[in-house]
């Protein structure tokens, strides 16, 4: 035994120095860089760069086929005096506000209904989501046909019920047109709100309801003091998404009315498409779409605080 200790020490094989190449292969920061590269490439070249470029274009007088000169805030000044632009801002806010509020109300209601026990529950839930799956444009076309001025099935049904005696000009009248596009938007958005809120509802423990019922709570009180507080965080997130996508909606309007009649349904997105691509005034169009950014930032702030609050409620269980 002692021999070993007495033996002269054999030099251990030298540990190889980590070369730069080894570092690149194994260092987690370098590895992270390699792994992130494809995603970051896409997001930088096709998202971050265009985002900046869009703001730059809004300060130029670019037209299609001609790079613009810097003209400062002239586009914005021009828009400031443009009554159609303000009409589109008004329409966008009206559209977003009414559609989101109703989507939330019906979506929550539908989620509560679907959360009950009943036969064919799974099938019903699957059916409810279909409007969300089908491409918006295609269902918008169906609505276009349903709201046709001559052959509308709604006008026909109301006439045969004796409620009206003329065809309603759904997409030709300003108020009706607004109501119709808002309806179509709600129709498409409700399933999303309902199914995501349903996922939230299912995390609520039934024992809470049982305890509250024993204490004599009514159904409204069950909702108000148990369901709603527990759902608040997910409501915040879902509604942020809903508001965001309603605010920037384009395809539904484009397929149904193209902004008409008399610009009554022009949203900021459709107006910017019309000005930039159809009329060729890229600078002006970019200014309109850049004007949406402050609103989006506001929505993102709400989402951020919604998420924070959610973490706080559920405890730190991420990671």
């Amino acid at each position: 035994m002692a021999d070993i200790a007495l033996q002269p020490r054999v030099a251990k094989p030298q540990i190889r120095e980590a070369t730069t190449w080894d570092q690149i292969k194994t260092n987690r920061n370098w590895l992270g860089f390699w792994f992130m590269m494809p995603a970051m490439g896409f997001l930088i070249f096709f998202l971050a760069y265009p985002l900046g470029l869009g703001i730059w274009i809004s300060f130029t007088d670019a037209k299609i086929g001609r790079p613009g000169q810097f003209i400062g805030v002239e586009n914005y000044q021009w828009l400031w005096d443009d009554s159609i632009f303000w009409l589109s801002v008004f329409n966008t806010l009206l559209y977003t506000f009414i559609a989101s509020a109703i989507k939330f109300a019906i979506g929550l209601y539908l989620a509560l209904l679907l959360n009950e026990n009943m036969p064919f529950k799974a099938m019903l839930r699957a059916l409810v989501l279909i409007p969300f799956i089908v491409p918006t444009v295609l269902s918008a076309l169906a609505f276009w046909w349903i709201f046709d001025s001559q052959f509308s099935i709604i006008s026909w049904s109301l006439k045969h019920m004796g409620l009206i005696d003329y065809n309603i000009n759904f997409l030709g009248d300003r108020t009706w047109a607004r109501a119709c596009v808002i309806f179509a938007n709600i129709w498409r958005g409700v399933p999303f709100v309902a199914i995501t809120l349903l996922a939230g509802l299912q995390t609520v423990q039934p024992s809470l309801y049982e305890a509250a019922t024993l204490d004599g709570a009514s159904r409204w009180e069950l909702f108000r003091y148990i369901t709603y507080p527990l759902l608040t965080p997910i409501i915040a997130v879902v509604m942020t998404f809903s508001v965001l996508f309603t605010f920037t909606d384009f395809q539904l309007i484009w397929a149904m009315t193209r902004g008409g009649p008399v610009n009554a349904t022009h949203l900021m997105a459709t107006l910017s498409y019309q000005r930039a691509i159809i009329a060729g005034q890229l600078g002006e169009g970019a200014a309109i779409s850049s004007a949406m950014i402050p609103f989006l930032l506001a929505a993102i702030m709400v989402s951020w605080f919604g998420l924070q609050r959610r973490k706080w409620q559920q405890g730190e269980n991420n990671d």
Binding site: F45, F46, L47, Y49, P50, L51, L53, G54, I57, A62, L244, F245, F247, T248, D249, F250, M268, A269, S272, Y273, A276, I277, L282, G285, A286, S289, S290, M292, I293, L296, A299, I300, S303
Partner: peptide, 15 residues
């Protein structure tokens, strides 16, 4: 995720 296509399509068209 929150940047919508409606504010990107004009600059993207030039890109």
């Amino acid at each position: 995720y929150l940047v919508p296509p409606s504010i990107l399509f004009i600059p993207l068209a030039t890109v």
